[in-house]
Design a protein around this nucleic acid. Structure first.
Lengths: 192, 192
DNA sequence: ACGCTAGCAGACAGATCTGTCTACTCACAA
DNA sequence: TTGTGAGTAGACAGATCTGTCTGCTAGCGT
């Protein structure tokens, strides 16, 4: 045992609580008061760290981005050094995510669904998806794909489709089918 | 010409208004008062037709289901009599949808994102997705796919992915890539 | 000892949202 | 003519939600 659980800083508590609540109930479905109550923080403290609810939402999305990108990269890396194998291996992250309890789809897609097109939240979602796609494009390029950007785009479709539909029926065949389709498409696109 | 368009019935006006507003701003983003005001209906009338907001949402989703299924079937039929070609042709509906102005993704996915897992709205979404998938499974079967349910599942992933990500960046290459991938997968699965 | 910063506790204002309820109008059919 | 059904107009209750503001406490460096 180390120190007697010193102190969890207020900002961190808020963010952790918001992460769980936003994801589980949707952004509009969770009020500031509830976040305040469940994170055990004073209202003034909350508004010192996050001047408006949207600021908290953005911080939440950043945390989601960090987590999801990490899982994607890890899964890809676990597939070994071959870029083509990494493209397919990334889909293991999808399977893991869908299997997790309380899984409710892609937090970014959900957030974008609740917010108008020009909003900061919508833009952040776009940036996230773009980052994933450009990472996949890089891998596809290394793998020698005929058209890396098309392959990457196609793979993001499978990924997003798996994220979206896996949220509905919990049946595990969605990520399996996604992975298999990815393998076929990667093989087809890199065949020489 | 039949009857001279007698009167615009209240229920219909409500539904039309709700369709536009819910889709554009999200379900939680539109209040009853606004629907009342924009459809030019009295509050009592509204609550006579729809005892609760959720009832209106359900009616809205039914209308969406009708429209989207219709477009899917039409696009498939336009591809001719060959079931394999129909599976690919269905993706033209995706392209048309993404190209439409004010396109904001799949109304069902968006609705599910705003509502908890056990809700009637969530269930309705599930039923819709299930209906699409079983229709695709039938086509895949007719097309002689080795495993019709896996092919259908894979195609729904591409479809949902296109619906979800097409909502973010308006770039038209998503539906194009989806269609191309569908063609490749259908060809691969039905090859003998 | 002093002041600064971080935090806690909670009242409060103002807006908004769902749903109820009363009262009136109009068309139409018995 | 009289009743019924559908609709209009809008006040109202009660909840909830965001954001502000006032006080108080406690650690910490100087």
């Amino acid at each position: 045992m180390s120190s007697p659980t010193v102190a969890p800083p207020a900002r961190e508590r808020i963010l952790t609580t918001a992460f769980a609540l936003f994801y589980a109930h949707g952004i509009r479905g969770v009020g500031i008061d509830r976040i305040i109550a469940e994170s055990g923080v004073a209202k003034a403290t909350f508004y010192k760290h996050f001047p408006a609810k949207d600021d908290l939402v953005l911080a939440y999305l950043d945390r989601v981005d960090e987590a999801w990108s990490g899982q994607l990269h890890e899964a890809a890396a676990a597939a070994g050094p071959d870029p083509a194998a990494q493209l397919v291996g990334a889909f293991d992250a999808l399977g893991n995510a869908c299997r997790r309890d309380g899984y409710r789809g892609c937090a970014f897609i959900n957030a974008a669904a609740e917010n108008p097109a020009g909003s900061r939240i919508h833009d952040r979602t776009l940036a996230h998806k773009e980052a994933v796609r450009s990472w996949l494009t890089g891998l596809a390029d290394e793998a020698g794909a005929a058209d890396p950007s098309v392959l990457a785009r196609t793979l993001t479709l499978l990924l997003d489709g798996g994220l979206a539909s896996g949220a509905l029926d919990a049946q595990p065949d969605a990520p399996v089918a996604a992975r298999a389709a990815a393998a076929a498409l990667v093989a087809g696109a890199t065949a020489r």
